[in-house]
Nucleic acid binder design. Sequence first.
DNA 1: CTCAAAAAAGAACGATCGTGCTATTTTGCA
DNA 2: TGCAAAATAGCACGATCGTTCTTTTTTGAG
Lengths: 203, 203
Amino acid sequence: MSKKALTREAILQQAVRSASQIGISRLTIGSLAEQSGLSKSGLFAHFGSKEALQLAVVQAAQAQFVEEVVKPAFTQPRGMARLRALFHAWVMRLYGSSMPGGCPLLAAAYEFDDQPGAIRDALVAGQRWQRDTLQRLLQDAQDAGELAAGSHVPLLAFMLFGLIQSAHHDHQLLDNHHSAQLALQGFAQLCGTAAPRTDGAST
Amino acid sequence: MSKKALTREAILQQAVRSASQIGISRLTIGSLAEQSGLSKSGLFAHFGSKEALQLAVVQAAQAQFVEEVVKPAFTQPRGMARLRALFHAWVMRLYGSSMPGGCPLLAAAYEFDDQPGAIRDALVAGQRWQRDTLQRLLQDAQDAGELAAGSHVPLLAFMLFGLIQSAHHDHQLLDNHHSAQLALQGFAQLCGTAAPRTDGAST
DNA sequence: CTCAAAAAAGAACGATCGTGCTATTTTGCA
DNA sequence: TGCAAAATAGCACGATCGTTCTTTTTTGAG
């Protein structure tokens, strides 16, 4: 890999961490340069504009999601095992050290939902892809007979994504130490699989 | 009401609308003054600092939530009726004209979850109160025998709040026209009540 | 109507940020 | 090792923002 690409990767890795804490729209070239050991203009030359930098950060965060959540899940056999692996990794990622300030993509969804442009477009595409992936694994599980035949798959995907967001909210803002457990219990209740014991009654 | 208080109310009402679109942390005194027909220093004098202004915006948005969601629900009889009224109003508010850019409190939760200070403290208190209110109405419904006796109330509150967030996300970012319907269907499935027809099978 | 107090306006400041331009250093191939 | 090209640094600019200070306008009670 060229020197330029290496430096760019290092910048983006640090930028994703910073974006996790302060949000993508509040990244500044100056502080990012300082954190990367570069000068403002040196860092700037890698991207050409702040918006291009922010877009690169979004794409880096999306790539990181695929590496940490989607790819590991696909090592599991198709069906409920793969679905559960995806959801668990997705939830557990909220508590890892790679995103100390929360998921930058979820935060960006709120930051840019009213700001048309390339960044919003990238976020929309990425979130649609996440949702589609989740829905596809749900459908696979249902086709394999591991999910109630009458389940409404789009609704399930909608609710599972809600569990992710609720876990993020409870963890980052409310400091609820049970948030991960609640998300996993919710998954178990919705997808009808055995799970960490508590109580999964629903009629 | 004094002139000062009237002007302050008008400023805050406009500020909440703006915060809905750009977020509380990106409010600027200059543009807020322009929108209110005041000068920068004229508006500034009402709050004394930008942080105080932002804090006032948070409190105004929280008060608006109580007026539009909580108070109407409490006109319903205790139990499932009141719970359903709360949830429906909560969801429907996401589609009203008072918050064109989404819920400023949900957005602020992401903006300030890593920024200690008075604003974050106010957000935490407000979100805890929202969750407690939801949980209390769930408990009431369960005590009235209108909710499965084995239901895990904190988990249900966690999941219902996830539905709100998922609806917000789908509506604001993904432009999913079924988001409100999905949230209401999710409520029906979780709380076991009849709801808009589609299919609520689970087992 | 008067006039003191309240409210708002106007102008200016220091700081920060994105960006463009030029000079300097570093890289990697001949 | 020499040298062109790539990468980075240095510097300055215009713009924007929060804030302060002073002046002007507006308000409302006597």
